[in-house]
Design a protein around this nucleic acid. Structure first.
Lengths: 214, 214
DNA sequence: GCCGCCTCGATTGTGGACGATATTGTGGTC
DNA sequence: GACCACAATATCGTCCACAATCGAGGCGGC
């Protein structure tokens, strides 16, 4: 975390971010070898920075490193992706509950604005806009929840299966399913009912898990 | 994680573990500077291994690194410790629920054995034995739950506030409070009631949080 | 024709030296 | 006596070359 926050440590942090993004978009395929020399050339940095980035990514669960054999993009089986989402389910539930406790009138206005924008995006059939709003919603909930550790954990988990989620979000008909779940989550947070918000968040992630299995 | 599993990568992994342990026991105090040269001398390894270990520990949230200023043991405010435990609460709940789903007769026998050993240890006033059984119980639950990702997250969270937990476990009277909670958790798992197991695990961690605030 | 061994190429791990940077101490000036 | 500029020191970041290790492919024996 702190490495990405520190503007001075541009090298290792930005290299790690760059690799992370390429893994997410599939530019680096699962199982692909990540040779240090190639990464050096590709990103124009020193070996130290590349090694640092690889160690960080290994710790984050995105790449696998074997002694003297190098690093490769970790393949995430569907099974592990499901387990990932199960953990995410309960942590998102925690954030939702805490958000329901903490939400100020200004927060509630912000959430409602996102809700109406989402509804509109789905109506207009704009999956990309909806996807961005989705990310924005989760960010906002986390911010309101003021759960630094939970946020950290969630971002770590999310980084690990962007690939699966990416595919899912682009599936036609998916927004129509998830929209009411999102709206319910927003409603419960705005109603300041922690228990109901927890349940709404869990229902939503559970539905994602179910959809992911197909 | 994989680094500690791999017997070949002895250096960086073992150095990280050694530092981790010294942080846990307080040999390295919170805020203390961790100078690379000192660590090299102390652990008898090369600079690369030390740097690798420090990067891993930074990623794990145990040390803070600032460019050109070195690493120091991260101080964990009580506030962050509480947030940590809040996340732990829900994830332990997940594991307990999954364990309740998965528990085989053999698992149940094992849990009941731990339960009676715990009761006996508290009766005999042996806090160290009880503490070890406590760790064993949590390990067993995680194993039964078969939630690899959740286990990883929990171990990471636990490593971050061993210090607070260490203090707490040694407080007199604490075992008498936590024993019935542990027994309840075991009962619900053996009864194969996921919802009740979840609630029992949460109650237990919630009580730890409450105790930690004092 | 198949199996084991051995050499070779590719890649990573390590150690040392050098440069960069922040902190600390010092001296001078107002 | 306080404050500021500057030098000295401590420490980290980076680069380079070399050693260690692993996998592959060829070669010979059976």
């Amino acid at each position: 975390m702190s490495s990405t926050e520190d503007p001075r440590r541009v090298d290792a942090g930005s290299v790690a971010d760059a690799i992370r993004e390429r893994i997410a978009t599939g530019a680096y395929a699962p199982g692909q070898r990540l040779v240090e020399a190639d990464l050096i050339e590709e990103h124009g940095v020193g070996r130290g920075a590349v090694r640092t980035a690889l160690i960080q990514l290994e710790q984050a669960g995105l790449v696998e490193r074997v002694a003297n054999r190098g690093a490769r993009v970790r393949m995430i089986e569907i099974d592990e992706a499901v387990r990932l989402m199960e953990v995410r389910m309960v942590v998102e539930g925690l954030c939702a509950a805490k958000a329901a406790e903490n939400a100020t009138p200004a927060d509630i206005r912000e959430l409602r604005a996102i809700a109406s924008a989402m509804t509109q995006a789905v109506g207009a059939g704009e999956p990309t806009v909806y996807s961005n709003l989705n990310a924005q919603l989760h960010d906002t909930v986390r911010r309101i929840a003021d759960q630094h550790v939970a946020t950290e954990v969630l971002l770590g988990l999310q980084a690990r299966n962007v690939r699966h989620q990416f595919r899912l979000a682009m599936r036609p008909g998916r927004p129509q399913v998830s929209l009411p779940e999102h709206l319910a989550l927003i409603d419960e947070i705005c109603a300041k009912d922690p228990g109901a918000a927890d349940r709404a968040a869990r229902r939503h992630v559970a539905s994602v898990i179910e959809a992911m299995r197909a």
